[in-house]
Design a binder for these strands. Structure first.
Length: 458
RNA sequence: UCCCCGGUAGCUCAGCUGGUAGAGCAGCCGGCUGUUAACCGGCGGGUCGCAGGUUCGAAUCCUGCCCGGGGAGCCA
C-alpha cells in the first residue's frame, strides 16, 4: 500500500488488503473508501462504483474497522490530498465491525482511552506510527552494532543476583504460594525450581561483562524488569534495554560510542520514517524533527558532575530539592541543564561514589567514579553507563562498603582475578528513546502492551 | 509510595451556591456533494465510578473504597 500511494504505481493492476478507516458516499454513483494496512501512515483512497455487484449490499455498509481486499487499477487522483487512488474492480469483505460496538471512531481519541483498548489501538494513526518508528529504531540498533563488529549476546532473563542496586525485583518461583515450604520459619528455596531464590533480570550487564572480557565488543538487547512502584510517564515494570559492553574501552571511549550511537539512531529515523515523523511534528510535538536534526549535527556537551553542581548553584533557580555536592541530580536539575542551560543533550560524568553502584571504576581522587549519564530534553536520562572497576582489590572493597557479599559475586570477581582488562558499557532505554524521537508524552504509549503497577490485562 | 486533578450518553465534555440530566461528535434514517475533520434535517441513546451517610429531595454536600491522569521519588 505504501507503494500504491506513489505516482510511480499509476497504471498498475493491484490487490490491497487492509482495514477500512472511513467511507464517504458520492451521489455520482460511487463511494470513497480509505484503506490502511499499516505499511505506512497514509491511507489509500479507493473508488468503489455502484456498478460493483456487492455495492448496495456490502460496500455501502462498510465503516471503520472492517477488513477488506480490493482489486483494481491505480490511477491519478482527481482530489488534492493524494497522488493516486485505487479504482476498484472487485471488493471483498473479510470481516465486519459493527459501528454500534466498535470502539474506535473516525474522531480523535485520548491516549488514556486508547490504553483501555490496547488490542485495537494499533489501528490508530498515532500508535501505528509509533510502532513503525519503534521497529525502525530496533533495526537501527542492531545495524549500528553489527556494522561495528559487536556480537549480539543473549543474557538470561531469570537471574539469582538480587542486589545489583538497580531496584526492586520480580520474584520467579514455582512454589505453591498457598503452601510455601518453610524451614525454621524461613522459606525453603531449596525446594524451588532452581533450588535458590530467583528473579527477573534488572540488567544484563554483569553477564555481558563476562562475554566482553572474552570476545571484545558485545551488546544485549532484551526485556528488563523492575518491580518498583513507579507511577510516572517515564517508567514501566517491563521495558527493553540495549546494553553494549566493550573490553579495552575507557570512559571517554564509552562516551564517544554513546554519542555516536544516539546520532546514528536519530539520523536513521529521520531518513527512514519521514512520513511518520511529520505526523508527530504536526500532531504531537512541533519540535521533534528540529530537535533530532540539531542533535545529529551538534557535539554533546560533556561536563563532570562537580561542574554541573556549580552551574546549578549559580543558576539562581529556586529548586525544590537543594543542590549540593554528593546529592543526586534531580529531575528538575536535569531539566534545567538540558532544557534551559545547554538546550541539548548533556553527558554528565565522574559522579560521587556514594550515589553510584559498586561496579563503577573509582577515580584517583577516591571520591568519584567513572560514571556517565546522557541527559536529553524532555525525557531526562536516556543512557546510563560507566567504566567498570577492573582492579580486584578495589572492587572487593567497594562491594564491602556497599554491604554486598562478595561470595554472591564470585564469578564476577573472577573476571578481575584472571586476565582483567579495562572495560566499559552503558544502557539505553528503548522506550525512552522512542519517546524522545516521537515526542510522545507517556511511555505507556510507546510500547504495545505496557506493564505498570496494577496493569497487565492484555 | 506521596502530593494535586478527575470519573456524567459509544467518544469529548457542560451541569456541581442541592429540586429527579444536556451539547458536540459518533450511530441510525433522509437530503446534498469527486469526497477527504464533508455538509444540512430528523431519530434513538444515560444504574451521573462503587458503597454508605446528611436531606422531604443528591450528578451536585460528607465519608470510605475503586479506577484514570499530571507531578515527585526510584531509575532506563
Amino acid at each position: 500500500m505504501a507503494q500504491a500511494r506513489r505516482k510511480e504505481a499509476i497504471g498498475r493492476q493491484v490487490c490491497v488488503r487492509g482495514w477500512v478507516r472511513t467511507r464517504r458516499d458520492s451521489k455520482a454513483g460511487f463511494s470513497f473508501l480509505e484503506i490502511n494496512d499499516g505499511s505506512c501512515l497514509g491511507n489509500l483512497q479507493v473508488i468503489a462504483s455502484e456498478q460493483l455487484p456487492n455495492y448496495q449490499e456490502e460496500i455501502r455498509r462498510l465503516g471503520p474497522g472492517c477488513s477488506v481486499a480490493v482489486w483494481g487499477t491505480i490511477e491519478p487522483s482527481q482530489g488534492a490530498k493524494q497522488d493516486t487512488e485505487l479504482v476498484a474492480q472487485r471488493v471483498h469483505v473479510y470481516g465486519w465491525a459493527d459501528p454500534q460496538q466498535y470502539p474506535l471512531q473516525k474522531k480523535r481519541h485520548s491516549f488514556e482511552k486508547l490504553r483501555q483498548w490496547a488490542h485495537l489501538r494499533a489501528r490508530t494513526n498515532t500508535l501505528g506510527a509509533v510502532a513503525r518508528v519503534r521497529n525502525h529504531l530496533s533495526y537501527a540498533i542492531h545495524r549500528f552494532f553489527q556494522e561495528r563488529g559487536f556480537l549480539y549476546i543473549h543474557t538470561p532473563i531469570i537471574t539469582s543476583s538480587d542486589c545489583e542496586g538497580a531496584g526492586q525485583l520480580f520474584r520467579v518461583t514455582t512454589l505453591d504460594l498457598a503452601q510455601v515450604p518453610k524451614t525454621n520459619g524461613q522459606v525453603d528455596f531449596s525446594q524451588d525450581f532452581f533450588h535458590r531464590p530467583t528473579y527477573l533480570t534488572v540488567s544484563g550487564q554483569l553477564e555481558a561483562e563476562t562475554y566482553a572480557c572474552a570476545l571484545g565488543k558485545v551488546y544485549t538487547f532484551g526485556p528488563t524488569f523492575r518491580a518498583e512502584n513507579s507511577n510516572t510517564s517515564r517508567h514501566l515494570a517491563e521495558f527493553w534495554m540495549v546494553e553494549p559492553e566493550m573490553a579495552f574501552y575507557e570512559l571517554e571511549d564509552n562516551m564517544n560510542l554513546a554519542e555516536e550511537f544516539l546520532k546514528f539512531l536519530f539520523r536513521s529515523v529521520l531518513e527512514a520514517c519521514g512520513e511518520d515523523m511529520q505526523f508527530f511534528e504536526k500532531w504531537i510535538n512541533p519540535d521533534v524533527i528540529k530537535r533530532l536534526e540539531s542533535i545529529v549535527e551538534s557535539e554533546f556537551v560533556r561536563i563532570p558532575y562537580t561542574e554541573a553542581i556549580e552551574i546549578l548553584k549559580k543558576s539562581g533557580k529556586d529548586f525544590e530539592f537543594p543542590v549540593s555536592w554528593g546529592a543526586d541530580i534531580q529531575s528538575e536539575h536535569e531539566r534545567y541543564l538540558t532544557e534551559e542551560y545547554f538546550r541539548g543533550p548533556v553527558i554528565l560524568y565522574d559522579y560521587p561514589k556514594t550515589i553510584k553502584p559498586f561496579y563503577m571504576r573509582l577515580n584517583d581522587d577516591g571520591q568519584t567514579v567513572r560514571a556517565m549519564d546522557v541527559l536529553v530534553p524532555g525525557v531526562g536520562e536516556i543512557i546510563g553507563g560507566s567504566q567498570r572497576e577492573e582492579r580486584y582489590q578495589v572492587l572487593l572493597e567497594r562491594m564491602e562498603q556497599q554491604g554486598l557479599n562478595p561470595q554472591d559475586y564470585w564469578w564476577y570477581l573472577d573476571l578481575r582475578r584472571f586476565g582483567t582488562v579495562p572495560h566499559s558499557g552503558f544502557g539505553l532505554g528503548l522506550e525512552r528513546t522512542v519517546q524522545f524521537v516521537t515526542g510522545m508524552g507517556n511511555i505507556r504509549d510507546v510500547i504495545p502492551f505496557p506493564r505498570t503497577p496494577g496493569n497487565a490485562e492484555f
